[in-house]
């Protein structure tokens, strides 16, 4: 299952990771801002998209999990 997390405190923000490690934050349509998304780096810096803000520590977590999973996959392939 892809690692996808709805922010526990800001429930209308859903965090996931693209294949290249960018964190994608989706603002779902539970608020008046509508359906928007943004891309962020591993410390929450904005990279692109309409959504400009993200929780840096949640980005940190998502990136870390992605990177360690990549390492696992690579390690398994090397085995």
């Amino acid at each position: 299952m892809a690692h996808t997390i709805r922010h526990p405190l800001t429930r209308n923000r859903v965090y996931s990771v693209e294949n290249d490690g960018r964190v994608r934050v989706q603002a779902d349509n539970t608020d008046e801002t509508g359906d928007r998304w943004g891309h962020f780096d591993n410390s929450g810096r904005w990279l692109g998209g309409e959504l400009l803000h993200a929780d840096p520590q949640m980005c940190r977590h998502m990136f870390a999990h992605w990177q360690l999973t990549q390492a696992d996959v690579k390690g398994g392939a090397d085995d």
Binding site: M1, H3, T4, I5, R6, P8, L9, H65
Partner: peptide
């Protein structure tokens, strides 16, 4: 669960968090 949440996680959602498998968006 943290008292700072404005929602109540299910037991399975707590398990998902602890297993680091993601806090499912839908009820997966």
């Amino acid at each position: 669960a943290s008292p700072n949440l404005r929602w109540t996680p299910t037991e399975s959602e707590m398990a998902a968090v602890s297993f680091n498998s993601g806090n499912p968006v839908e009820s997966t």
